[in-house]
């Protein structure tokens, strides 16, 4: 599904990603771990197409289609979803209205008419129940005055609504207490299927107890320095990132 080959990317002429290779197949969950500043969030932004990042070398393709020339919204229309580490506030725009706009824009891109209102309502009801979201919450302005947990849960709600092919969860666990973490992780697990793929970006192993990955990759200084199965995450937890750093120096 997702194929990243020798990806080099920079921001303001500073090299961040220095040759990433990654392949994600349908139905798989990949975890990307690594110390602060290793390039985890940059990788997420580059896949989503954020313009301030410059792709210097290499390629990203989704289902065989090169993404380089595609604008962020076009990538979204192709089924890429990014759950933001810091979701932004949009005052006066309700969660419902935002989702309605997002879904209809994506439908438009695929040559479909707007989703009928009753179908939209049904979808909202279904997904909010699945994620244990209070319906009152959906009429509030997007992320405005939301707690950290509410913001992250809202991201997962949007993921559920958009039904992406590839979802990237960027530090979804940061700022969550254990109860919120469990709810968010349960939501993600319910959304797992053999047709979609998920990349979980995280600093800690904690989240991976709930969202169990098929593969774990360790990012360090813009490169994937180690890949393995879920046991690698435990080993990391045990030995810390210094272990990886030392190993790569050697």
């Amino acid at each position: 599904m997702l194929e990243i080959k020798n990806l080099h990317a920079s921001v303001e002429e500073k090299d961040i990603l220095k040759g990433i290779n990654l392949e994600v197949k349908p139905g798989e969950v990949h975890a990307i771990m690594g110390p602060n500043g290793s390039g985890k969030s940059t990788l997420a932004s580059v896949i989503a197409g954020k313009e301030e990042f410059e792709v210097e070398k290499g390629s990203i393709s989704l289902n065989g289609e090169d993404l380089e020339e595609l604008a962020p919204e076009e990538r979204a229309h192709k089924g890429i979803f990014l759950s933001f580490q810091y979701p932004v506030e949009i005052p006066g725009v309700s969660v419902t209205n935002f989702m309605k706009t997002a879904i209809n824009e994506s439908r438009k891109a695929r040559g479909l008419d707007d989703m009928p209102a009753n179908q939209m309502l049904k979808l909202i009801r279904e997904k909010s129940e699945m994620l244990e979201i209070d319906r009152k919450f959906l009429s509030r302005s997007l992320n405005e005055g939301f707690s950290g947990g509410e913001k992250k849960r809202n991201e997962i709600f949007q993921m559920a609504m958009m039904e992406p092919k590839l979802a990237i969860l960027d530090e979804t666990d940061s700022g969550l207490d254990i109860d919120a973490l469990r709810i968010v992780a349960n939501g993600v697990n319910k959304l797992r299927s053999k047709d979609n793929a998920i990349i979980v970006i995280t600093h800690y192993q904690r989240l991976l107890e709930y969202i169990v990955p098929d593969f774990v990759h360790v990012l360090h200084d813009g490169k994937i320095v180690k890949s393995g199965t879920k046991e690698l995450a435990l080993e990391l937890e045990d030995k810390g990132y210094d272990w990886i750093k030392q190993e790569t120096v050697v």
Partner: peptide
């Protein structure tokens, strides 16, 4: 960018933000 990532192009995103504001 947040709106773009949800499939909403920049013109539409501005309209959405401005409408919310107003």
């Amino acid at each position: 960018f947040y709106c773009n990532q949800r499939g909403i192009d920049t013109e539409k995103a501005i309209a959405l933000i401005v409408n919310g504001f107003s």
